[in-house]
């Protein structure tokens, strides 16, 4: 996992760099929660560029982080989502509340709370 924080925009980017399943999601969740609580960002972007597989464990994991970031008054988006991962997200309807954005710094993420 690669984590970058932009102080000016209060934007936390978490880049997941492994397959997401029940086995890996607990580790990802623990680390992501640690980073969110450390920075309390206004915007959280989950980057899926290096995620080539995800099952339904990813839905629960992403929803859990969404609940945490909204509790702190922040917004959340997902970026660089490959088609196979997108298929899982779309089946769950999760993209209606956590949008897949085209670029960081775009306006889409600001619209969603």
């Amino acid at each position: 996992m690669k984590v970058t924080y932009n102080e000016k925009d209060k934007l936390l980017k978490i880049e997941i760099t492994e397959e997401i399943d029940h086995h890996s999601s607990e580790k990802i969740r623990t680390r992501a929660d640690f980073e969110i609580q450390k920075y309390i960002p206004k915007k959280l972007v989950m980057d899926f560029e290096n995620v080539n597989f995800m099952d339904s464990a990813g839905i629960g994991m992403i929803l859990g982080r969404y609940k945490m970031i909204t509790m702190f008054g922040g917004t959340m988006g997902m970026i660089n989502v490959h088609s196979s991962v997108k298929k899982v997200f779309e089946m769950s309807g999760i993209t209606k509340i956590i949008p897949i954005i085209e670029e960081i710094g775009g306006t889409e993420i600001g619209k969603c709370v």
């Binding site: 999601s25 969740r29 339904s56 464990a57 839905i59 629960g60 929803l63 859990g64 089946m91 769950s92």
Partner: peptide, 11 residues
């Protein structure tokens, strides 16, 4: 409590 989504059989 395990953040399971309940989407397994649907998928």
């Amino acid at each position: 409590e395990l953040e399971r989504s309940g989407m397994g059989f649907t998928i």
